[in-house]
Design a protein around this nucleic acid. Structure first.
Length: 282
DNA sequence: CGGAGTGTTAGTCG
DNA sequence: CCGACTAACACTCC
């Protein structure tokens, strides 16, 4: 269930794996997982792989883009048959049967490599769109949290009109993209700000602290290859990330806060589990 | 067995 | 405009 660091990790591994490959076959096992007209996809070449917010962009020839949102349980898994036949090492998930129970879409490339879109809960999707449609599709999205456009002045202006809590506000995609539940909780802990504060109540000094924390937490999670709980996020080889050992508060209810030793509490905000330390987060 | 919870986000309704 | 709530779905945990 990827947030920005997990999606970014997938994109970085997917790019060298599939750029230049030609789609030889497409199999859709779950109709609702593939949106758009998929005629003429066979024979298309992958030109590049990118990311916007938590979406993966697979650029094809003829100005087409396969846009993917992994939502809660989506995964891309890549297997390279020709490398195996040439004596390469099996990938980490080689024990995994692919296509499997949760495989919703399968791409076969010329030469034998295959890309699987697995998604247990079927919230995720792959959508075939035309490149010129992208700006329209992204219209309601704020800048990525790591974008230079996100400044204290920008956040202050955006939050001033909102009555919601600061935690809900930093997860709102129309303001800024890429901060999901884990990193929202952790950023607030790092910045020593309570998730229960109203967004408009933060002063510029607190906003600056929060912004620094969000960027730091996200960058560190990318460096660590993302956070894996229960195997729900894995990279394209089926491998878990390494950031779970670095998590500050998410999922650590009743454990002690690394800042101050206080006991971490769990509450619900906007229907999402929210972990924080009421001793040092004020 | 029933109910709650899960890393997302659109949509609806007041 | 805003915010509260729900649905989409499958599975695990208590």
């Amino acid at each position: 269930m990827p947030e920005l660091p997990e999606v970014e990790t997938i994109v970085r591994k997917l790019r060298p794996a599939i750029v230049g490959r030609v789609i030889a076959r497409l199999e859709v096992y779950s109709a609702k997982s593939f949106l758009g007209d998929r005629l003429d996809l066979v024979g298309s070449t992958v030109l590049d792989v990118g990311r916007r917010a938590k979406m993966i962009e697979i650029y094809l020839d003829r100005d087409r883009v396969l846009l993917t949102h992994l939502k809660m349980t989506g995964q891309y898994l890549f297997q390279n048959q020709d490398q195996l036949m040439a004596g390469g090492h099996p990938t980490a998930d080689w024990h995994r049967q692919l296509p499997g129970k949760h495989t919703r879409v399968q791409f076969d490339f010329e030469g034998g490599a295959r890309l699987f879109f697995n998604d247990q809960r079927k919230f995720g999707w792959i959508k075939l769109v035309q490149k010129p449609e992208l700006p329209q599709l992204y219209q309601k999205l704020g800048p990525d949290v790591i974008d230079k456009k996100i400044t204290v002045v920008y956040l202050s202006e955006q939050f001033s009109r909102r009555k919601m809590t600061i935690k809900q506000a930093i997860m709102l995609n129309e303001i800024l993209c890429g901060v999901g539940n884990i990193y929202a909780c952790d950023s607030l802990n790092d910045a020593r700000i309570s998730p229960l504060r109203s967004a408009r109540s933060l002063n510029p000094e607190e906003l600056a602290r929060l912004l620094t924390s969000m960027k730091k937490i996200i960058a560190s999670a990318i460096k660590n290859g993302g956070t894996t709980f229960d195997g729900k996020y894995v990279d394209i080889e089926g491998k878990s990330g390494n950031n779970q050992s670095k998590v500050l508060v998410y999922g650590r209810v009743a454990k002690s806060c690394y800042n101050c030793g206080g006991i971490i509490k769990k509450i619900t905000l906007g229907g999402r589990g929210t972990y924080f330390c009421s001793d040092c987060q004020v």
